[in-house]
Amino acid sequence: MRNVKYLLLSICLFGHICLINGQENHKPESSFSFSIGLGYFGHMSPGIGYESVSFVDEPNKEPSMSLNGDLAFEIDKYIFSFYFTLGLVDPIPYKQDSYSEYNFTVGKEFFKKGRFAFEGHVGMGYFEQKERYAPDGQIEIYGTVGFPIRIKANFYLTNNIALGLNPNANINFDSSIMSLCLITKLRV
């Protein structure tokens, strides 16, 4: 509970600082958007270093499916979003592994040319990993604070609809994750 209080306080303070810095006696431009994506994820190999990502870190384990989405509010040049990811490792003979993360991020569109736009996001949230062992059905759950880093490379088909690539990393104290998803974004 204490971590949640610090998380909310940090997000509020960061958002307030961004809004104060962005005010210049003009009416702010704002919009709302959401996106959903499907892709793969892998665990960052512990003990080797974060430069090495293992998408196949156990025998008989295949790259794993990941589903992500976000709800975002854009004001001026800042993007505030609630971001979630769900991942499931295909069952291997002795274990099924899944994870979920729920994050608040702040981002900015750094590059826009024609129909192409590039966004970067950082934030803080909750990361949970669940392991179910066979044959006894024992379940182990690990939860911790995570620090997501996200990039969205969007190609706008219209002014409000985009397709894109969304690489993500969640650095945490339990099992850091990297994922790559194809996304669809709708701005309303």
Rank of each mutant, 00 (worst) to 15 (best):
F147E: 09
E131T: 12
A162T: 02
Q23P: 01
P28L: 07
S10R: 02
N68S: 14
N60I: 00
G120K: 02
F14K: 03
V56R: 10
P46S: 05
E119T: 05
S30N: 15
A169W: 08
F110W: 03
S66F: 08
I149Q: 10
F73S: 01
C18L: 15
I48F: 09
A169D: 00
M178Q: 11
S35C: 04
L165C: 05
I177G: 03
P135I: 05
A162P: 01
D90C: 01
E62Y: 09
G146Q: 07
P28G: 07
L88P: 00
T144K: 07
T105G: 05
M44R: 11
P28N: 07
K27D: 14
L8A: 12
C18K: 09
R132Y: 05
S175P: 00
P63H: 01
N21Q: 06
E74N: 13
Y133K: 05
L71T: 02
G137W: 03
F173R: 10
V56E: 10
T105R: 11
S10D: 06
P167M: 04
L38C: 06
F127S: 07
I75M: 08
I149T: 13
S175H: 12
K108E: 07
L163T: 02
G107A: 02
S31C: 07
L7T: 11
F73Q: 03
I92H: 01
R115Y: 05
F118H: 01
C12L: 15
F14L: 15
T144S: 14
G39W: 00
S81D: 08
N168Q: 13
S66Q: 10
T158A: 03
I75Q: 09
F111L: 09
D136W: 08
P63C: 00
F104N: 04
V4T: 12
C181T: 12
P91R: 12
E51D: 12
M124W: 12
R150N: 14
E109T: 00
K108G: 04
F147H: 11
K152V: 01
G143P: 01
G143C: 06
R150L: 15
F127H: 15
V145E: 05
H16M: 12
L13T: 13
N60M: 06
S64C: 08
I139C: 04
V89F: 06
G22C: 06
E101M: 11
Y102D: 09
